[in-house]
Every structure is written in C-alpha cells, then in structure tokens.
Amino acid sequence: MYDFTYHRPASLDEAKVLIDENEDAQPLSGGQTLMPVLRARLAMPGALVDLTRIDALRGVNMEGGRIVIGGATTHAEVAQNEQVREHCPALAALAGEIGDPQVRHRGTIGGSVANNDPAACYPSACLALDAEVRTDRRTVPAADFFTAMFETALEPGEIVTAISFAACHDAHYEKFPNPASRFALIAVFAARLGGATRLAVTGGGTGVFRWQEGEQAVDRGEDLAAAPLDEGRFTGDLHASTEYRIHLTRVMAQRALARIG
C-alpha cells in the first residue's frame, strides 16, 4: 500500500473538517472494498478519515414509518436488527447475504452505497424501496443518487450519514451469485410499494437500475418474460454474456415476485 495518514474523528463535524483540510482525503467506512483496492495499489488517497466510530452514523431508527439506517452501520447489524426485520424483512435478508460473515461484520451500508459497485446488493434495495440518501449536506433520493457505475451524486468530501427506506413487507431480493466472486452476477430486488411494483436490478454491468417496463408489465398483469429490457443496461464479461444477464434478470425478477406472492 502507498503511504497515507489515518484519522479517526469522533464526530461528524470533526470528520468534515478533516476531509476539508486534507487534500486527497477519502472517507473510510468498513473498508471491505477499499482495503483490497489499496493493497492492489489502485488508489492513492493522501488521508483516510475513519467514520466507523462516529456514534451518530451508527444504528437503526424508525422515523415516520421509514427505516433510517446510519451510514456506518454494518451489514451484520442491519441483518440482525429487530426493527429492520420487522418492518422490511427483505432488507435484513439482503444485508445477511452480502459477501461473507467476516465482510458483514465490517462492511457498512454507507460505504456500499457510496461506492456503488455495479454488482453490489444495497443499491438495488435503495431503488426499489424509495430510499433517500442523507449526507452531511443534503438528502438525495436514490433515483438521483446512483448516477453511473462507481459514480454517485456525492460531491467531493460529502459523507453519507444515513439511508432511509420505505417500510415494506412485500419485498424480496433474489440473487444469482457470480460463481467466482459471489457478488451478484444478476440480482433483482422486487417490492410492492404503494400498490405499485418495483424491480431494481444490480449486476447488469453498467450500474443499478429500475426495470420500469417490467414493473409496468407486472402491474398490468402481463407476462414479465415478454417485457422489454434495455440491452444497453448490460455488459458481458468472462462470467456471463449480455444475453445471459438479460435472461437471468427475467428469471430472478420472476422468482423474487413469486416469493412476494
């Protein structure tokens, strides 16, 4: 790894000052993506600002019927949290299937959302459950947050403080894991929200997206298999062609919907 300085602020304000003061500073959350990147010498941040011990960024609250999860809350904490399990069991289940147990003990929701890996799990839940990403500066609807693969609406130095989700019992996350990495080769988060179907797709290769034609087809009682699916959302690689990813999207969506009933 290249050299950097490590900072561990105790408060959000302190974190903001550190990020402002240090050029090339990068927020560090669970580090489950960042550490391998640093080990591979693929990034050269001048400073890391560790957010994981800022109490205000941790834990789960209910606010006006929405589930609010602090940015530094780990996947394991979300998976085990009684409120998440009660108000959105599918979200708890998703968190409980990210990576592996060790990763879930360190990785955080804020880190996952801010990184926006095109094969990550959380972004699909964000889109399907009408999430709002809260930062130290503003609140961004999920629909506007995930702009492209590995890119978000976050400005330099902006910190994800929490994500709020609509409570939802009619939801299911169906993941087809990459046989090697176990990331989502394709995964679909399906939800019925306010009487309408939501289908959010991750793993396609270009970044998470909502399959609106599929949602409309379901809501009109049409066959999902025939619903148009934009090929431009998908890429092929050594694990799966575009065509196969498109097919898997339909299968995962159907399976997720079948689980909702």
Partner: peptide, 27 residues
C-alpha cells in the same frame, strides 16, 4: 490472497470474525 476472499487471515475483533487483511491496525 489479495482480495480478502480466502479467509486465512480471520481473527476476532470483540468476538466477531473479521478478515485482518481488510482492516488497518490503527482501526
């Protein structure tokens, strides 16, 4: 491994298993 996947580095922090290759000592 380099990608935090093999788990040979697993230790416990506060009783929870973590990968010690994906965490800084200062953390």
């Amino acid at each position: 491994c380099d990608t935090s996947q093999c788990g040979a580095c697993t230790v416990h922090i506060e009783g929870q298993a973590i990968k010690s290759c994906a965490m800084l000592a200062v953390q």
